[in-house]
Design a binder for these strands. Structure first.
Lengths: 190, 190
DNA sequence: ACCTTTTGTTAACGCCACTGAACATTTCTT
DNA sequence: AAGAAATGTTCAGTGGCGTTAACAAAAGGT
């Protein structure tokens, strides 16, 4: 009765996400610009994100319609209460994920950053919060945490697939999931 | 010099992803159908994913063009070598993430499933592999692992934001990241 | 005040991924 | 073999999200 990965009911929740990847970045860009320069204009946002002014203009008008973005007395862009909450939620998700990937999983800087960025806006409230708790604990200097980190850093050469049979994850499927070939789904389009 | 969250260079890698969320599910659907029924036809895939036959037809022809999907002697759908690798990679990512969310982070079943599904195809090779190592370790019956799980399950009421100052994550930002308000980015569109 | 530059908006277009409907093709039934 | 049913494809239409390019509005320089 457990949920199937391809249940028609669930897999499409993806694009039902209220917050798209790009929208999140528009919000964060406004936030960043305001703290960096004290103000944010449409053009600045466009430049910061590396999109055209047209794209920024249209995206921002959507965000205004949702009331996540407003304008101050000088017509500079401003995050509303909600907009600010969303932006900071996503930003925190990014920080936590990035740190988790780098410091706990020992993923390389580049990959950690890329993955955190792809995922930051998709992590639900609950998951984000609890990942924070985990990280808080794992990055503390409690003996237990230190040992876990040490354990993970030992894995650098692959926790060799030898002990597959004892691996509580692979166990069932019989083959070591970590030993899969590399399909060509990484990298960028031509 | 550390990478900024909004670097024009990186944030858009998102849509450069060679594997879209939906394509991943088309592949997995074929895989599932073949093991469940021994064959997979376009219509079956459409039904399994809850999309129209038209959508399935077009998606599948793209996948054929990429050579991730082929047909067998009876013109039933078939994953190519590459297609199968991709599908299983994504499937494994899903399993690992789901388990990580549920068993380690103690996220509710629903949310864990939803989040794992949204993220499964975005996790890079390296990150996926290392997350597997972590899970392998954390789900083992080693004393260390057991204690970590116990520690995490204690957090159920929030690892109260009291000790923020000592929190190695929140520390710098001054406020507890876990104490943020709930912006309305969860749930589905109207 | 006037002309130029900067900034913002809009329109036409392409790409992805869906829908629904019309059409073509295959397969099953009798 | 012929008609009905199931299966597969194609073709507008929609919405998200980008691009250029043309145009409107605001800001600045002399």
């Amino acid at each position: 009765m457990s949920q199937e990965i391809n249940d028609a009911s669930h897999w499409r929740d993806f694009d039902q996400n209220l917050l798209s990847h790009s929208m999140a970045h528009y919000l964060m860009a406004i936030d960043t610009l305001r703290t960096e320069h004290g103000y944010a204009r449409s053009t600045d946002v466009a430049e910061k994100l590396g999109v055209s002014r047209g794209a920024a203009s249209m995206a921002l008008s959507q965000l205004k319609k949702k009331d996540w973005v407003g304008e101050d007395h000088n017509r500079f862009l401003l995050l509303t209460e909600t907009g600010a909450q969303i932006a900071s939620q996503v930003e925190q998700n990014f920080l936590i994920l990035n740190q988790f990937f780098k410091e706990v999983l020992n993923v390389g800087e580049e990959a950690a950053h890329a993955d955190a960025c792809k995922i930051e806006h998709l992590l639900g409230m609950e998951t984000g919060k609890r990942l924070l708790w985990l990280m808080r604990f794992l990055m503390s200097d409690e003996e237990l945490a230190i040992q876990v980190r040490k354990q993970m850093s030992k894995c650098n050469e692959g926790c060799s697939p030898v002990e597959v049979s004892e691996c509580p994850i692979c166990g069932a499927s019989g083959e070591c999931l970590a030993a899969l070939g590399t399909p060509s789904i990484e990298g960028t389009k031509p």
